[in-house]
């Protein structure tokens, strides 16, 4: 059975912004892009572990605040010349609520 966890309302996340969710397996970043889509990825830059939720959100990417790596919110992969990836967590939107896939939260970050 697929179980989803309700973590809050869409409006709790600012447009072109992000929030973080504390979980037993570490922090998860929840991002809302300009076109009103929501993504969730592990909140640790593959470079030096920078908190991605503190970065600037643009297009479907976020730029890490520590050393400006650009991470794709869709795939979790570093863009451009940089190499590395963070885990992504499936998201569902249901009447204005944001739901994360429990199995993906429970699984330890791939790294």
């Amino acid at each position: 059975m697929t179980i989803w966890i309700d973590i809050g309302a869409l409006d709790d996340v600012p447009l072109r912004g992000s929030r973080c969710v504390a979980t037993p397996t570490g922090k998860v970043g929840v991002f809302r892009t300009a076109d009103d889509r929501v993504f969730a990825i592990r909140n640790e830059c593959p470079h030096k572990g920078g908190p991605l939720t503190e970065g600037i959100v643009h297009g479907h990417s976020v730029t890490c605040p520590l050393h400006n790596w650009v991470i794709s919110l869709e795939t979790g992969e570093a863009q451009g010349a940089d190499e590395g990836a963070v885990g992504t967590i499936p998201v569902r939107l249901d009447s204005g609520r944001i739901l994360l896939l429990r199995a993906a939260i429970a699984a330890k970050a791939a790294a």
Partner: peptide
């Protein structure tokens, strides 16, 4: 306010399979 608090805290129970 939202900047300084996590949006949600998922407990161990909730997250466990």
């Amino acid at each position: 306010k939202h900047e300084f608090k996590p949006m949600a805290v998922v407990g161990y129970q909730e997250a466990a399979e």
